[in-house]
């Protein structure tokens, strides 16, 4: 974890002692107690020829497909750290969004504003990108415990990326 988040222990101590303790004591959230995050290291990477690349779409909008996936636990004040893998043959209109921390007006009108899967498939057909990985990684980006993000969610996404042999990831936060 240190390589990804070198100040994690300090951050977690502050998170637990201040924000989490206040929540557990009062049942209310006080964002003034939430420790700021500033990573000191930016990951390095080689250039990628996107016209030959297998690109993985990752969205934090809380997207899922009803009847296939359980919705995210959007109402949980402590967050939801699970992911959904959504086959790219499901078009944007198949998605629903379980995430209580942004206005859904735009995504309800046009899901591609947060899950641009049809655009990316068109770009593959046009040769702009080499491939679109056959599954979208979806999570619900309200996740106050960054320790759980680093220890639980990110390794799961990295494993998906390895399994799908992707060359690049395109993250769309909400």
């Amino acid at each position: 974890m240190d390589a990804v988040f070198p100040t994690c222990d300090t951050w977690l101590e502050s998170y637990r002692e201040r924000w989490l303790t206040h929540y557990q004591d009062t049942g209310t959230i006080d964002w003034t107690l939430y420790p700021a995050l500033k990573l000191n290291t930016t990951p390095a990477g080689l250039a990628v020829d996107v016209t030959q690349a297998n690109v993985l779409l990752i969205t934090s909008a809380g997207g899922y497909v009803p009847d296939i996936h359980e919705p995210f636990d959007a109402a949980n004040d402590l967050g939801d750290y699970s992911i959904r893998l959504i086959d790219t043959h499901h078009g944007p209109s198949a998605y629903r969004f379980a995430h209580d921390h942004y206005d859904h007006t735009a995504v309800d009108a046009d899901p591609q504003v947060l899950v641009p899967v049809s655009h990316l498939l068109e770009m593959k057909d046009e040769g702009v990108i080499g491939e679109l990985a056959p599954q979208v990684v979806s999570f619900m980006g309200y996740q106050p415990d960054l320790g759980r993000v680093v220890d639980e969610m990110i390794p799961e996404i990295v494993q998906v990326a390895r399994d799908l042999r992707v060359d690049a990831a395109f993250l769309v936060p909400s």
Binding site: Y102, D103, H104, A106, V107, A109, D110, V113, L114, S174
Partner: peptide, 8 residues
């Protein structure tokens, strides 16, 4: 916020 890729 909520329209990261563009307007609907």
């Amino acid at each position: 916020r909520g329209a990261t890729i563009g307007n609907p």
